[in-house]
């Protein structure tokens, strides 16, 4: 009996994940191969449509832009935070956790107020005399990218602070006592040791952007359709569940492929294990 104790305790959670996640998601993917047109008909239709290809391409483009910007901002900020004195570090961590725990709707809504036609940015620019007519900032790719960077920078900062703090201080001190300038220490010691963390952060941000819904819906609208908003539209507006399932399958495959590829890369690039 004792041999199965672990299984007994883990079985309710296992059952929930299998019954309500693994099976339904597999069923969604399987149905895309069993349509009357043949096993790959829905994929031919997806990649054959110029509009859907454009949505996929745009989603990749936006997610890459968000990932790169968040990586740069997040890493430099995390570097400063990790070297800050104790009290300041606590304040900065609080300032990063607060937006992280605030919902995506609230955080996207903030950018709706800022970027709107009569929003804060437009009215500020007008009152400064820099522009005469309000800019169209909402429903552009730029608006979606800015709001998503806002969404993911806290996550990146917190992930990377954790990584940077785990780098032994001895290594930094050894480098500088051997005569390396701070910039050389940063480039040759800190950065390489942070690579696995940067990869983890990049995966989180890329997959998060790639599969997001609320932000592109609010700030991109119909004009900046992304995979998530397209999937919702197909499923709940045009009720084309086969097309929605196809988008779902493409999302799952791309997400899992990226996680797997980045995991493999993180293992190869980790200077501690190489």
């Amino acid at each position: 009996m004792k041999r199965f104790a672990g299984w007994t305790q883990a079985s309710p959670a296992t059952l929930l994940v299998v019954v309500f996640l693994v099976l339904p998601v597999l069923a969604t993917i399987v149905t895309t191969f069993t349509t009357p047109g043949g096993p790959f008909a829905t994929y031919a239709a997806f990649f054959g449509s110029g509009f859907r290809r454009a949505v996929l391409f745009r989603t990749i483009q936006v997610s890459l832009a968000v990932t790169v910007i968040a990586l740069v901002i997040g890493f430099l900020t995390a570097y400063v935070v990790s070297r800050a004195p104790g009290w300041l570090k606590s304040i900065l961590i609080i300032a990063a956790v607060f937006p992280l725990l605030t919902g995506v709707v609230v955080r996207s809504f903030a950018w709706l107020i800022i970027l709107g036609k009569n929003g804060i940015l437009n009215s500020t620019l007008i009152s400064l005399g820099l522009i005469t007519e309000p800019f169209q900032m909402l429903y552009t790719q730029g608006a979606v990218i800015v709001a998503m960077v806002y969404l993911f920078v806290p996550l990146m900062i917190l992930t990377l602070v954790g990584v940077l703090e785990s780098i032994p201080d001895d290594l930094i001190q050894a480098s500088s006592s051997l005569g390396a300038k701070p910039s050389a220490t940063f480039m040759q010691v800190t950065l390489p040791l942070a690579v696995p963390g940067l990869i983890v952060g990049a995966v989180l941000v890329f997959t998060g952007s790639f599969t997001s819904y609320a932000t592109p819906q609010l700030l991109g609208g119909e004009q900046v359709m992304m995979m998530g908003t397209l999937m919702y539209q197909q499923a709940m507006v045009t009720f084309d569940w086969v097309a929605a399932s196809t988008i779902a399958a493409v999302m799952v495959v791309i997400t899992i492929a990226i996680v797997a590829a980045m995991n493999a890369m993180a293992r190869r690039l980790n200077p501690m294990t190489a």
């Binding site: 994940v17 099976l23 069923a27 969604t28 997959t207 779902a248 999302m251 799952v252 997400t255």
Partner: peptide
Amino acid sequence: PVLVPELVLGFSLLKN
């Protein structure tokens, strides 16, 4: 549940 896109999970729960 954090690896599978939430949208896919939501849609699959609705459909299946």
